[in-house]
Nucleic acid binder design. Structure first.
Lengths: 152, 152
DNA sequence: AAACAATCGTTGACTTTTTCAATGATCCGT
DNA sequence: ACGGATCATTGAAAAAGTCAACGATTGTTT
């Protein structure tokens, strides 16, 4: 079958023009990454999104649900589900907004922070696996470029 | 409300650790990009995915549906739907596989290539808009890094 | 050559996710 | 105090994703 490395082989179709489309590249890397991430997070009963919410709840930034929805590109109703789940499991809790009593601030519990620390460790291994083809420098470059593209 | 540029402002939550997660950055850039891309493609009755299929059908690589599914990270049944739609509109057609008569090769029609050329032009404007914060060099770097991460 | 397991595209059922409008509570500007 | 806007929440409808089964065909084993 010819030479075969342990790496993922380049698919024949990558030669097409579309192999340069940022949209497709993002979609594909995101798809494969999500698969790995969700698998890694399953050990802690989390998925990519609930992990994101948990992380932000642990950040000390005291995000409101609206902020979570905007930041994570989710519908507000989806945030309700995610927070419901995390709250039922005692990992986060809803607190009343400080200036705005309509808003609810999501904060982590001690248990939530415990789980988050563990899960994050698992995820970082996972991320390293996904970007194994990149050097340390390139890894940092990629993050920087993505951030710049998003927020200038 | 303080100074306000025409650019997207940096959300408060981007300061969190998760603002460095490759997974989240990919998800977010992909989400905002898809929105723009689908909007741009709507003029031609296409969406991101059908455009991808059409592009590959126009590539001369004669992809099978299985290859499309693998390359685009889709379930084979989703490819069936996408090809059905494009075929009904006369943009692509199914041809019998050459070595393997089970497989079906997706090739573009003249009309398909015509639409594709137009749609691609629209998309490129769109991509440029999305990555406006990046310089020409950075734009190329980003593509290169994404490709390397995917295929080494 | 006959039998067997594996693969391709397709279908249909099932689950999950997304989208959207409506609601009560609260905020803000007038 | 009034009116319009925003927040979280609910529930319903639409879209997308997942998965197992099928006929046709392939490659392999015997």
């Amino acid at each position: 079958m010819g030479p075969q490395s342990t790496e993922v082989e380049i698919p024949r179709l990558a030669a097409a023009k579309i192999g340069n489309d940022v949209g497709l590249l993002l979609a594909k890397l995101h798809a494969t990454g999500s698969l790995l991430n969700n698998k890694a997070l399953a050990d802690y009963g989390l998925r990519e999104r609930s992990f994101s919410v948990l992380t932000l709840a642990c950040s000390g930034l005291e995000p409101t649900q609206r902020e979570l929805a905007d930041f994570l590109s989710l519908d507000p109703s989806q945030v309700v589900s995610l927070v419901d789940d995390l709250e039922h499991r005692g990992l986060v809790k809803r607190a009343q907004g400080k200036q705005d009593r309509r808003a609810k601030i999501i904060v982590s519990t001690a248990e939530g922070r415990r789980i988050h620390t563990k899960a994050r460790a698992g995820l970082e291994v996972c991320e390293q696996t996904q970007l194994a083809a990149l050097s340390e420098d390139e890894n940092l470059q990629l993050r920087a470029l993505l951030k710049k593209a998003l927020w200038g």
